[in-house]
């Protein structure tokens, strides 16, 4: 695993080698038009985003509320179009990649359908691409086995705890064997204990599937624990202010959280986040607004 050194603000961050990155963002910006009654001016959510993510990486996006990290994830996933710049995923335009079902999405809410059993929820994407029933069932069982919910196939979502529901959502996201797994604060609604368990679980799944993960989070420890790189963002407009390579041992476990290097990296990201507020190149006036909001 080659991990590039973190670049400074607004410099392109590219991992070397390989047959091209899975995600390649160049000069991406996103402006939301002033639509609602509240918003008088257009909101510049993202500006000058350059980022390349290599196959098999686990990249976390972290930053204060309103820094556009979720928007960036949604731009990568073609859930919302970039205003300017190019978004290339698997060597294609993002909307082509979406039509090719290159994405698996996991949101903060599990978004499971009550009218489907756990098994049928995981089968949903396979139904959409028209896989035959036998294959659907086998694949869904395999995925539920992967997230260790094999004995809950016949349950309905409301019969599961929050953590279990989120594991079903992960199984569903992996059902199509996507090139890239996009996760938008997937464990944000869980309690701390469950969250830590889910982190271990996710690492295990990531190691087994070898998929590329882009992970949005508020939590510094979570970002450091999970990632191969942590992308630090600042708000208004959302920019990448720092990229912290995480050089912890690849195989991580409970003991990883006790390593000295882990604490150093947590501190490094925290300082980046704090510094990012000043180093983003935003005028002081905008920063003051950001703090009061």
């Amino acid at each position: 695993m080659t991990v590039p050194q973190g670049g400074a603000a607004a410099t392109p961050v590219r991992a070397p080698g390989g047959a091209g990155p899975v995600v390649d963002l160049r000069a991406v910006s996103k402006v939301f038009a002033a639509a609602g009654r509240g918003a008088v001016r257009p909101v510049e959510a993202l500006a000058g985003i350059d980022l390349a993510i290599e196959r098999g990486e686990f990249v976390s996006l972290i930053g204060p509320s309103g820094c556009g990290k979720s928007t960036l994830l949604r731009v990568i996933g073609d859930l919302t179009p970039a205003t300017t710049g190019t978004v290339t995923v698997n060597g294609k335009a993002a909307d082509r990649a979406r039509r090719d079902r290159d994405y698996g999405m996991v949101f903060q809410a599990p978004v499971l359908f009550d009218w489907r059993t756990v098994q049928k929820n995981v089968e949903l994407p396979l139904e959409i691409i028209g896989r035959p029933r036998g294959e659907r069932e086998a694949r869904a069982r395999e995925m539920l086995d992967l997230v260790e919910l094999a004995e809950f196939t016949g349950h309905h979502p409301w019969q599961l705890s929050g953590g279990m529901q989120q594991r079903v959502a992960i199984a569903r996201a992996l059902a199509l064997d996507p090139a890239i797994l996009l996760m938008d604060e997937p464990f944000g609604a869980l309690d701390e204990m469950t969250r830590e368990r889910m982190n271990l679980e996710l690492l295990r799944i990531w190691e087994r599937t070898g998929t590329t993960v882009v992970f949005v989070t508020h939590s510094i420890p979570e970002a450091v624990f999970l990632s191969t790189r942590v992308v630090v963002m600042s708000a208004r407009p959302g920019r990448i202010t720092d990229v912290v390579p995480v050089d912890l041992p690849r195989s991580r476990g409970v003991e990883t959280r006790e390593l000295e290097r882990y604490f150093e990296l947590v501190t490094r990201v925290r300082e980046s986040l704090r510094g990012g507020e000043g180093a983003a190149g935003a005028p002081a006036r905008v920063r003051a607004e950001g703090l009061s909001a």
Partner: peptide
Amino acid sequence: ASPAALELMRSYAASDAEVFRKV
């Protein structure tokens, strides 16, 4: 249907008819 549910279907490039029927 929640916006997230519709986004989920969008991420699967589901057709309008499928969104209607399944969600």
